[in-house]
């Protein structure tokens, strides 16, 4: 029997200030702000992304600032179907941090077959000319290759470069992975937000 299309959970990880929220804003709202503010009020958003002419419901989760002091709980990572790993091309430290984020995700979310898990690596802020580039494209690609061939894009939330492509890529790999799996949510889960049983009609 065909199942309804599963909701895909995508999370955005990376050091504070690399532009996670901006990337999301750009993708969802087509907007960008020059000003940096630590993330407040950002939770997750749901939207459909079109993959092979079919709408795939995507839920994109922001860190709500809990990454700032390395205090994201394991719950945040759970059930993620894809991860965007973001660094700032002008900040070497943010690139060096990627390994730890990837590791933390694998340990906390414990995905089946972590080597093929859909990570997409984004080097953001390529529009910045006021600061020198600290991470070359080659260096980043090398790292991605070492980690089993992760997809890599250089992006700019400010100039809208490769943002849509990044989300489509992660969604596409998550869908593909989902198709290969039998059941990728824990069975028999009770959704407490759904309508109580007694209110359901008997039609």
């Amino acid at each position: 029997m065909p199942e309804r299309t599963k909701l895909l959970k995508v999370i955005i990880l990376g050091e504070s200030g690399v532009g996670k929220t901006s990337i999301l804003e750009r993708y969802v709202r087509h907007s960008f702000s020059q000003q940096y503010k630590a993330t407040i009020g950002a939770d997750f958003l749901s939207m459909d992304v079109i993959i092979d002419d079919k709408p795939v419901p995507l839920q994109i989760w922001d860190t709500a600032g809990q990454e700032r002091y390395q205090s994201l709980g394991a719950a945040f990572y759970r059930g993620a179907d894809g991860v965007l790993l973001v660094y700032d091309v002008t900040d070497a430290r943010s690139f060096e941090g990627l390994d730890a984020w990837r590791q933390e995700f694998i340990v906390s979310a414990n995905p089946r077959d972590p080597d093929t898990f859909p990570f997409v690596v984004l080097g953001n802020k390529i529009d910045l000319i006021s600061r020198p580039r600290a991470v070359s494209q080659k260096k980043a690609q090398q790292w991605c290759l070492q980690k089993g061939g992760l997809t890599h894009f250089e992006t700019s939330a400010a100039d809208n470069i490769n943002i849509d492509l990044a989300f489509e890529t992660v969604a596409r790999s998550a869908v593909k992975r989902g198709e290969e799996e039998e059941e990728f949510i824990l069975p028999e889960t009770v959704e407490i937000n759904r309508k109580p049983a007694e209110e359901q009609c008997n039609c």
């Binding site: 804003e25 969802v28 960008f32 702000s33 503010k37 407040i40 950002a42 958003l45 749901s46």
Partner: peptide
């Protein structure tokens, strides 16, 4: 267009 603007999570 501040990055702090929260976003609608509905589709």
């Amino acid at each position: 267009g501040d990055a702090n603007a929260s976003y609608d999570q509905r589709h």
